[in-house]
Nucleic acid binder design. Structure first.
Lengths: 216, 216
DNA sequence: TTCCTGACTGACCGACCGGTCAGTTGATTA
DNA sequence: TAATCAACTGACCGGTCGGTCAGTCAGGAA
């Protein structure tokens, strides 16, 4: 097995490993681990099945590599959200909007992770997801806690709980979209920006310190 | 194939069909559709594999029957949430608490449905999930809309969006628990009641009409 | 008593699964 | 030029998959 970080691409055009990983990510995200065969991945990557096993010791190793790459790709983009010194309210709004945008843009990866979370998480995968979520979650908690220190936000709230509500609202929007589209009561299934705006509006009203008031 | 609603139980002790469905629900919820074999289900139900195919035409038919039964079981319990004429705030709080309790109690079923939602939902399954979620969701929307009519809640909010936030907060709590348990910032992963209380507190503050105030 | 029907079983099927292996190819190096 | 080595392939393996089938068996109707 070759080092997965190698960038040789001696024979094929683009890096074979990258092609395999890309195909695997799409298929795993779409159908889940067990429903995808190595033959299907090989075919999608225009590569022989034996070649896939040449680069990845096992199906599980390929799956883990897929997860890892997807994580790195996402964190590199979303990570280290700019914590501006400005008002917390604006920071939270921007975070929420970026967050949902990022989820919708990398929907394959999002599905991959959510699938993983619904399983038992055999410790190794858990660490991966923990890393992805953990960093951004910590940033968010920091923003909220700073807002509390500045007496901008209610001090009696658990900042992690507030962060959970914000992230959860976005994640739930993402995964419930297809169902919501068939609900007569829901008309925001295809307007994520509007959803985030209203969500942040409600959340801010709920967490702003008494005395502060928000626009509108 | 026998009618699935039959209650003959001529030969086996308890209804064979029920035993198969129970085993299937547990296995499908735990590992997903593709990772569970008919042999495994048959063994778990102490029945020959051929017998499973005698009662259910195919693996897919068994899966759908499993979903349907689980849905019926759940809706029968949670359904038609008592809409008291009292304050909307109390109604929402009670709904949220019951909702999360119900999810945690039927965690197998919840995982089953969430897994389903992450897939493409081949129209038939969608209708099932739509039915389960739809009824309770409509009840919740009704409660909120009534609160708006009584000028107890802000009138400028989409009631379905508020309902989404409430349900989403609970669902996200459920599915992110295992990850959250490893986050140093989070200490409410094992206190659903406390989580719901704080969540409703924040949400209510965000949606109550100006002028109204809440305890604490 | 005979017959019929539905619950139920073990043996079996072709297809496909994850994974292996002997061998080919093409660039790199000595 | 010869040797080496990674990238790559087609053929193949044992095992398991979803699903079938001929046949056994118990109970109810005639």
């Amino acid at each position: 097995m070759t080092s997965e970080t190698a960038t040789h691409q001696t024979r094929s055009g683009s890096s074979t490993i990258a092609r395999i990983l890309t195909a695997a990510e799409a298929l795993f995200a779409e159908h889940g681990f067990d429903a995808v065969s190595m033959s299907a991945i090989a075919e999608a990557a225009s590569v022989s099945k034996a070649n896939v096993f040449h680069h990845f010791n096992s199906k599980h190793a390929l799956y883990q590599a897929t997860l890892r790459r997807a994580c790195e790709k996402t964190t590199r983009q979303l990570n280290h959200m700019v914590i501006q010194p400005g008002a917390v309210a604006a920071n939270l709004g921007e975070f929420a909007e970026n967050h949902l945008e990022s989820i919708l843009e990398h929907d394959q990866f999002a599905r991959l992770i959510l699938r993983e979370i619904l399983s038992d998480m055999p410790k190794e995968q858990l660490k991966i997801a923990q890393q992805v979520f953990g960093e951004n979650f910590s940033d968010l908690v920091t923003i909220i806690r700073r807002g509390q220190d500045h007496r901008e936000l209610r001090a009696d709230l658990d900042p992690a709980l507030v962060a959970t509500l914000l992230v959860g609202a976005n994640v739930f929007f993402f995964q419930a979209r297809n169902v919501f589209r068939h609900f007569p009561e829901v008309n925001f299934a295809d307007e994520p920006a509007h959803y985030t705006r209203m969500m942040v509006d409600i959340l801010l009203r709920g967490i702003l310190a008494s005395g502060s008031e928000k626009k509108t």
